[in-house]
Write a protein that binds this DNA or RNA. Structure first.
Length: 608
RNA sequence: UACCCGGUAGUGUAACGGUAGCACAACAGGUUUUGGUCCUGUUGGUCGAGGUUCGAAUCCUCGCCGGGUAACCA
């Protein structure tokens, strides 16, 4: 073979995985392929956003491309923050992205799925509470953990600071027997919230604060969304997470950069459990447990957006947006309602790449991704958003023609449709000027333009409101020889504008969106300021009385088997991509603008 | 002023000791029945100083700058 080796460039995580695979570091699947097993471990305390999509794409993508497996696991170790509502929304969003997790049930053929179907295969960390508890007892017996009676304030004081070492807890040297007894009584509920903790005995002088005897269990007499009242002690993230990964046989435990300092602890806990264990189970504590590799990557940041769950919640609660799925939100439910496709979101994630540098992606990259996909798949339609009446004075009164319009120039298989044409039309207000600026190619007195897929028309005059001077109607004549938009005499026009027949137009509401935050870095605020000051007052513009070509009356939004909305998406020619909003109903069309088309004329005009 | 991690065109990401490339953005032109798409071209970069080497974005040292870390959150 003389074919040049096409070496796909790998991101640093893929490089690690490939090196591991080459060394068979994690063994093999029954089919002989090297084992790769990833997971996405959200806490069910908020809605997923575009940043989570990057993590899901990374984790699932790895499993997919290396023939591995992927788990969807809820990290539900804190009963006070977590709710079933979030579980449902997260499952829906992960499914929407096109991910297949181990044990996932697919429902097709128009069947209606149940809640159990939706969550089949989904894992909950809380299912491992008993195992985690047993391992904690083991660490106590090994002298690696102790019950501490310090209050949270005292614990914090004893921990020291970034520059000063901590001090040992006075309870650090309790006997194994006493620790066992106390921990058992913690579990049985004998002590009030916050009165005691189980801590790992590591090193109060470590420069890594995570290693200064971290808390493994806290007492919380709170009902858990899954386990109810079964437990009143709950494991902390650092203790729980590696164990969850271990139990599931996760090979690469991928998380974001801020967990880099936690990796030594992740490793310490598993090593502590493995102390006294052997591969063949001959050790005093039995068989070694699996020890995954934690890998950290840079989380996604996008200009004009916010990813903080807390702030997103504030936007919803504070009424700055309508809901979690407000089309201006960076949530996956918001993007979906806005008209984004899972393909575009995935392409965007692939496009921005994976590295350890904490940067910020320009939002145009996201907009570019959805334009690129919708350009290929969205049917074209004509819609007049800000209507102005156009009267063709030499067109026979009462006559209607059906003209052929191409559905998608990028996709010949999409075919054509008929669009009705008559003497009175609507055109865009912006497509007519009494006094055209330099370089203006659209309609103005004396100028000839093409009505897309229809005829050449020449502007002959205007009708104005006597009182206000506002243009009420534009009058023109048409050239019957140019039917379809071609001139037999070879005469050219500079402009082509869209139109809708006044007698056939469908009235609609159209919602135009702009960045939720006008500042590229909304969180950059002066001392004492709030990111809320960076909200864009014009992020939503609602237009009513828009005129749509009649075929658009049939546009609707549907649902998949799990109830997730699947809106129809179209391009309004010369405007942008739009989708049907879930507020639409029979006889009440409502469209969201997903993203506008690029507009080089607007750029020119702005410059003057 | 402790520890950890980073720093390549405006933005993001490649180059793994051997020609600094790609995408988006910007700019210029071409095609066009969407001022869209598509095509062509242009501008523009290795944080700094030393060192190792025939050769350094890459390895070493020292600076500089940025991020993370002191929840009984994850």
């Amino acid at each position: 073979m003389t074919t040049p080796e096409t070496k796909p460039t790998l991101n640093f995580v893929q490089e690690i995985v490939e090196a591991d695979n080459a060394a068979r570091r994690w063994g093999t699947w029954p089919d002989g392929r090297p084992r790769v097993h990833t997971r996405f471990p959200p806490e069910p305390n908020g809605y997923l956003h575009i940043g989570h999509a990057k993590s899901i794409w990374l984790n699932y993508g790895l499993a997919e491309q290396y023939g591995g497996r992927f788990n969807l696991r809820f990290d539900d170790t804190n009963p006070v923050a977590e709710e079933q509502e979030y579980v449902e929304s997260i499952v829906r969003d992960v499914r929407w992205l096109g991910v297949k997790w181990v044990g996932m049930r697919d429902v097709t053929g128009g069947a209606r799925a149940s809640g159990a179907d939706a969550e089949s295969g989904v894992i909950f960390s809380s299912d491992y509470f008993q195992q985690m508890h047993d391992w904690a007892v083991e660490l106590i017996k090994k002298g690696r953990a102790y019950v501490c009676d310090l209050t949270s304030e005292e614990t914090s004081t004893y921990r020291g600071t970034l520059t000063k070492p901590g001090t040992n807890s006075p309870h650090r040297d309790r006997s194994v027997e006493e620790n066992l007894d106390l921990f058992e009584r913690m579990r049985k509920g004998e002590f009030p919230d916050g009165s005691r903790t189980l801590r790992a005995k590591i090193d109060m002088a470590s420069p890594n604060l995570n290693l200064r005897d971290p808390v493994m269990y806290r007492i919380l007499h709170a009902a858990h969304h899954r386990t109810g009242g079964a437990w009143c002690i709950y494991p902390m993230y650092d203790w729980a997470h590696g164990l969850e990964d271990s139990i599931e046989g996760i090979t690469h435990s991928i998380c974001t950069l801020e967990f880099e300092n936690h990796r030594p602890l992740y490793d310490w806990f598993i090593d502590a459990i493995n102390e006294g264990r052997t591969e063949d189970g001959s050790g005093p504590w039995g068989r070694t447990i699996h020890h995954p590799q934690q890998i950290e990557f840079a989380r996604l940041s996008v200009t004009h957006m916010l990813m903080s769950k807390r702030k997103l919640l504030e936007l919803v609660k504070g009424g700055h947006v309508r809901s979690w799925d407000d089309p201006r939100m960076p949530t996956l439910s918001g993007l979906r309602r806005r008209g984004y496709t899972p393909e575009a979101v995935r392409n965007f994630c692939a496009d921005v790449g994976v590295a350890k540098f904490n940067g910020t992606i320009e939002i145009v990259r996201l907009e570019n991704a959805i334009r690129e996909h919708l350009n290929r798949i969205a049917p074209r339609r004509m819609a007049v958003l800000r209507p102005l009446k156009l009267v063709i004075t030499n067109f026979p009164e009462g006559s209607v023609e059906q003209l052929d319009a191409v559905n998608n120039p990028e996709d010949p298989s999409a075919g054509t449709r008929k669009v009705p044409f008559g003497r009175e039309l609507y055109i865009e207000r912006d497509d007519f000027r009494e006094e055209p600026p330099k370089g203006y190619h659209r309609l103005y007195p004396g100028n000839e333009v093409r009505l897309r897929y229809a005829y050449f028309v020449k502007c002959t005059g205007v009708v104005k409101d006597m009182a206000t001077g506002e243009v009420r109607e534009v009058h023109c004549t048409y050239d019957p020889a140019t039917r379809g938009g071609d001139s037999p005499d070879g005469r050219k026009v500079k402009g082509t504008i869209h139109w809708v027949s006044a007698g056939h137009a469908v009235d609609a509401e159209v919602r135009l969106y702009d960045h939720l935050f006008s500042a590229p870095f909304p969180e950059d605020v002066p001392e004492g300021g709030s990111y809320l000051a960076n909200l864009n007052a014009n992020s939503l513009e609602v237009l009513s009385g828009c005129k749509l070509e009649p075929s658009l009356a049939e546009a609707k939004f549907g649902h998949d088997a799990f109830g997730t909305i699947m809106p129809d998406r179209v391009q309004f020619e010369r405007h942008g991509y739009f989708c049907v909003d879930m507020d639409a109903g029979p006889g009440r069309p409502v469209f969201n603008r997903t993203v506008s088309l690029k507009d080089s004329w607007a750029k020119v005009e702005k410059k003057g």
